[in-house]
């Protein structure tokens, strides 16, 4: 669940990134956040994960008040939000299994639970046969599926995918999107940040468009079919 109310962000060097953002995402939704590069998409993701603080406005993510959250509570917020990055951000020195299990250890899960949960999640993303491989032995699509598994393993109420297909070819991109759609059907809120219009048009979902730090459109169904950005 996300609520942003009149959120503005100006970076310390004076660069304005967001102005007057109002955003409401309910539990169980699947939402695309689209826009060209430097439109402010990544800043929204960073605000949602409390990586940067908003300059003004108010915000709530999964019950955490972004304006008042203490640094010690930020890890708890992040555990409710699984993030998938464009560059996968896997730890190269750890196996696929370890990369996913690691996220569970970070939240203090007992080994007994980890041993059950990690294979289950890897099976969900179709990587049960690659558990012992290292990230550099995998294709881009497979790596991204590991990242999705990692984001998913702690049962977050929401998954944010920041340009998850930016480094993938079209076929693999569809695969990842379908995976995210499947996860959404299982009850997790999904927010996909992207600038790939063909991909967005493949799915009939809610699309929020952002340009120069402002929301310029919010509707369901292929946004790019009607307007250019």
């Amino acid at each position: 669940m996300v609520r942003l109310l009149d959120v503005c962000k100006v970076y310390e060097n004076g660069t304005p990134a967001l102005s007057g953002i109002n955003l409401k995402i309910d539990d169980g939704e699947f939402v695309f956040l689209v826009g060209s590069s430097a439109s402010g998409k990544s800043t929204i993701v960073k605000i949602l994960t409390s990586e940067v603080k908003m300059t003004s406005g108010r915000g709530i993510v999964n019950g955490f008040n972004l304006n008042r959250i203490k640094p010690s509570k930020v890890p708890e917020l992040r555990r409710t939000v699984g993030v998938v990055f464009q560059d996968f951000r896997l730890i190269d020195k750890k196996t696929v299994y370890e990369n996913v299990a690691f996220a569970m250890r970070a939240v203090g899960a007992p080994p007994r639970i980890i041993k059950k949960r990690v294979p289950y999640v890897l099976q969900l993303v179709g990587l049960e046969r690659k558990m012992k491989s290292y990230p550099n032995e995998l294709s881009g699509g497979e790596r991204q599926r590991v990242a999705v598994a990692r984001a998913l393993v702690n049962n977050p109420s929401m998954i944010i995918a920041d340009e998850p297909t930016g480094n993938l070819d079209p076929k693999m991109s569809i695969e990842i999107m379908s995976l995210l759609e499947k996860i959404n059907e299982l009850g997790t809120t999904v927010l996909v940040v992207t600038h790939e219009r063909e991909l967005v048009n493949e799915f009939s979902k809610r699309v929020i468009a952002i340009d120069s730090g402002r929301i310029i459109s919010d509707r369901t169904g292929g946004y790019y079919q009607n307007e250019t950005l």
Partner: peptide
């Protein structure tokens, strides 16, 4: 990078 990943996953500083 490794440290940043841990933090993004929701690991506490102590962890």
């Amino acid at each position: 990078e490794e440290i940043a990943i841990m933090k993004m996953i929701g690991a506490t500083n102590g962890f």
